[in-house]
Design a protein around this nucleic acid. Sequence first.
RNA 1: GGACAGGUGGCCGAGCGGCUGAAGGCGUCGGUUUGCUAAACCGGUAUAGGAGUUAAUACUCUUAUCGCGGGUUCGAAUCCCGCCCUGUCCGCCA
Length: 467
Amino acid sequence: MIDLKELREYPDRFRQGVADKGMSVDIDRLLALDEARRSILTRQESARAEQNRISKEAGPKLGQLKGKSKGAHGEEKAALEAAITQLEARPAALKLEIQECEHRLLAIEPEWKSLWMQVPQPPAADVPKGQGSEDNVEIRRWAPPQWDFQKTFEQNRGFKPRTHVELLKLHRLADFERGVKMSGTRHYVLTGLGMRLHQAVLRYAVDFMADARGFTPMGVPVIVKEECMVGTGFFPAGREQAYHIEESRRGSGHDLFLTGTGEVGLMGIHADEILNLEDLPLKYCTVSTCFRREAGAAGKDTAGLYRIHQFDKVEQVVVCEANDAQSRAWHAQMIETVETILQSFKLPYRLLQCCTGDLGVKNEDMIDIESWMPGRGEIGLDGSPQGAFGETHSASRLRDFQCRRLNLRYKDAQGKTQFAFALNNTVIASPRVLIPILEMHQQADGSIIVPPVLRPYMGGIGQIGAD
RNA sequence: GGACAGGUGGCCGAGCGGCUGAAGGCGUCGGUUUGCUAAACCGGUAUAGGAGUUAAUACUCUUAUCGCGGGUUCGAAUCCCGCCCUGUCCGCCA
């Protein structure tokens, strides 16, 4: 969430941010509610202050009088009771005033809070403006020497590509029918070498993060309380995307939610903590199962492993000092990590600078990495797919938006408590990444060459489907 | 799941209706003393919100916070109710 003080001081900055992200949050309404809330609060506090003063001075006296009046009779008792009534009048009036303020606060706070939570992090100044994904800007692309982006798959390789769905069937790497039988649409079973390849990719990525990049691997909950979802910025906006476990309907406990990314568990670890400067930067990675309802995506990417309800992902997060240069440096390093991994798989990809309209509530800057998927895209005149880029990674800079919500702070060099900056990035998401791996490494006979870096995790198997 | 016990500041731990934002200790920070270190002594040491003074560091006032929420009361860490969590024993179980 954003800093309310900053909002009061520079409301235009946030109005512009809302507009640039193509969102609609009524900033003026929020400012009005905030103003009203503070004036009520001031009134309530001064009433409380007086109440406290009175109860210190008159309180003990009252107690004494009441004690005496119990034992007293006749005129003496009447006099005592009159004194008591008089003493009680002022606190009673204050109590009423405090209660009235309380009621007025209760009336505006839900809307105030809700609007506040909706105000997005304004995009960084150098993020290109745009409406949506069509305005994203390609930064660069990379391909292994034997691949030419100007040519079709057939021109590059000398044969027509099979789609990953065909390859999965051919080698019995996945079973969609039975997945659907058990769990419905967008579910699947990974079978045999399909499961091994999936595991290989994940293991390789975790080892790479730990050994080559010095990140600490973590195993985190994928079932979390609502606070974690709100704190990491996935709620309230993304509520529809999360599976909801309604434990409260069973009469006890609190509801839980399945996380859509390991980011939730990783960032939740230090919620409500104040870290020492020496603890930063935090460099964490995890491999976790991710659950997504894909609400609103009906009919999109229904075939294959592209858009599914359950997958596994190696995620990296960095929590660093509240410093723009540091945040940018880590962002660059995270992207470099992804490029190194994709290059080690020899997969063509491109980097996209996401425009303002394609950013979510919580990020100020995002780079998507799309891998080339020959089996994707329009069907051409020759009857085979033309190929297309498909998003496999995404790297975001969140400034202090997420740590503010999580109440994750640190003590800086001056000893001042600050909200930290956070970043997150996909290291590898599987089985989606299996799509380019299978499609790009298929051979004319339909067999698939396993990238050498994955072979140690595949029991040394170098080719799938070779006779 | 059942039966007890308990949740107080960075930690330990007292308090069980007003004098308690909270004793005492540990830790920590600043200082004094001392060949050095240690010890001893003195002083400070929660967080968040609001208002104000200041160029700013900062300071002053004020409110809230003793697991969370609600209630009783002129007044709640303290009494009552609900929930959450932790510990121990029993039951069940990868």
